[in-house]
Amino acid sequence: MRPLTEEETRALFEKLAKYIGENIQLLVDRPDGSYCFRLHKDRVYYVSERILKVATSIPGDKLVALGTCFGKFTKTQKFRLHVTALDYLAPYAKYKVWVKPGAEQSFLYGNHVLKSGLGRITENTAQYQGVVVYSMADVPLGFGVAAKSTQDCRKVDPMAIVVFHQADVGEYVRHEETLT
């Protein structure tokens, strides 16, 4: 376990900024104690200092996880967000997409969101903007990338993809073993 290097921090923050913009600030400066990012076995964890203190006394090879896992660094040093970060992305997300109840299940099985399943979308979402996907009952389901801007969405046919799937909570069941 170690703190992130400069490049790693940049890669992480760039990725996070796609979803929550300048709200990253809120993740780092929190009123309820200081939080930090730590790298352990290529995974990035977001933990409070207090929990970190406990974790440091556990031998590295015996430590499995701590706090919240945000994602991992690939072998090519790119950062990939995991669905476990959703708890922190959802409240700060700038651009959101709501899917209809019928399309919920399809998204949870790892499919893209089609125009026919699109319930609502934040105004002025740009193309390829990171978005958090919600159900109509405002339950966060995952995140992805807008395939079309809000304007374009109105025009396309019902079977066109509007949000590319990146991660969804169905992965808790489908890929339980790869989460950490």
């Binding site: 974790a55 015996k62 499995v64 996880a65 706090g67 896992c69 950490t180």
Partner: peptide, 30 residues
């Protein structure tokens, strides 16, 4: 522990540290 990791993240538990030590070593670890 894999299932624990999944479950804790799914349920939004943020104050946990997971380890796989032998329970019998415990006061020594922490």
């Amino acid at each position: 522990l894999r299932s624990v990791v999944g479950n804790l993240h799914r349920l939004g538990v943020t104050n946990a540290v997971l380890s796989h030590c032998d329970g019998r070593q415990f006061p020594k670890v922490l």
